[in-house]
């Protein structure tokens, strides 16, 4: 289990929401894990407890039981200290009404404790940094969704946080805006050594920005690790192996050869996908190509993506819970 100098350390945390008398929803069910310094992500389907966990860490709500530390500070007794070192980008629409962008960011800088002149200077700098320099003096209630996402990132960065918590940072962005935001987040993490904790449904965004992933499901901890390790394990697991092949020559002859060898396949966009278990079928495939006089242009084992890990882990966790429930 974690140690005090972890980025985040959670031990036995439970949070229940009361709904209509005795019927309660367990948002976090006795979860324990720790996050190392670096770019972290929390994944999970709707109702997994991701937002509840972030709210508890920020002190918006109190957990029923358990303990947690952020940057080595206890969330119950040192909440104010924790917030001096973090920046939070909320998921939903949120503005301070009646002010322009630079006033909003500088106000939040002052509330973070920056001296007035420094807060104003940093407000200009962070708005410039996130690409809102030309909209600095516009009222924030006139901003588009994409601009609001950038504004929320700017206010989170204004106090130079040690940990940046981003809740669905690419929500509502168009494809270009999404790529820009991902590049920005990656730059913040890699070039400025700011620790990240990202909660997102968009797994490709997580793969593009994070080093570590923690998966939650229905309030339970499922798994965690380095994303490369998780996807590597997934690609190496017996039930998920697959060979992707591209050929030049007669497709029908080659597919006939695969059938004769008892190999199943699927053709997607001229790529022949051959699932297998146990030994690699590479040798047999080369022989089929030789026999059918076709040329293999490429033959690569498929690399697992985070989505595979996610689906596999969530299904596994749900099966376990179902068995546990029956027993």
């Amino acid at each position: 289990m974690g140690v005090k100098n972890d980025l985040i350390y959670i031990e036995g945390m439970t949070k229940t929401y009361g709904v209509s008398g005795s019927h309660n929803i367990v948002a976090l069910n006795n979860i324990s894990f720790s996050l190392s310094r670096g770019a972290n992500s929390i994944l999970g389907p709707n109702g997994a407890g991701k937002s509840t966990l972030i709210k508890v860490l920020l002190g918006y709500i109190k957990a029923d039981s358990g303990e947690a530390q952020v940057l080595g500070y206890d969330i119950k007794s040192e909440g104010r200290k924790i917030k001096e070192f973090i920046g939070y980008m909320p998921e939903h629409y949120t503005i301070i009404p009646g002010v322009n962008a630079v006033k909003q960011v500088s106000l939040l800088g002052k509330i973070a404790g920056l001296p007035a002149a420094e807060a104003m200077q940093r407000a200009h700098e962070t708005l410039q940094y996130v690409g809102l320099d030309e909209a600095r003096y516009r009222k924030v209630n006139e901003f588009s969704t994409g601009m609001l996402q950038r504004l929320k990132l700017a206010q989170a960065l204004v106090n130079d946080p040690e940990l940046l918590i981003l809740d669905e940072p690419t929500n509502g962005l168009d494809p270009r805006g999404r790529i820009d935001m991902i590049d920005l987040i990656r730059e913040i993490s890699q070039d400025h050594s700011i620790n990240l904790l990202i909660s997102s449904h968009l797994l490709p965004d997580i793969e593009a920005t994070c080093e570590f992933a923690t998966i939650l499901d229905r309030g339970h901890f499922v798994t965690q690790g380095r994303i490369d390790d998780l996807t590597g394990q997934e690609a190496g697991s017996a039930e998920n192996r697959m060979m992707n092949i591209q050929i030049k020559g007669s497709l029908n002859d080659f597919l006939g050869g695969l059938r004769k060898q008892g190999l199943t396949f699927e053709v997607i966009d001229k790529v022949i996908q051959v699932p297998y278990s146990g030994e690699s079928p590479a040798q047999s495939i080369i022989q089929i190509a030789y026999d059918t006089n076709t040329q293999i242009r490429s033959m690569t084992p498929r690399k697992a993506i985070l989505e595979d890990v996610f689906i596999h882990q969530i299904e596994g966790a749900e099966n376990k819970q179902a068995i546990g429930g029956k027993n």
Binding site: T94, I95, P97, A112, A156, N159
Partner: peptide, 14 residues
């Protein structure tokens, strides 16, 4: 109305 408490409360105040 504009959910500004989420911004205020993320800073070191209560």
């Amino acid at each position: 109305k504009h959910n500004a408490l989420a911004l205020y409360m993320a800073k070191p105040i209560d």
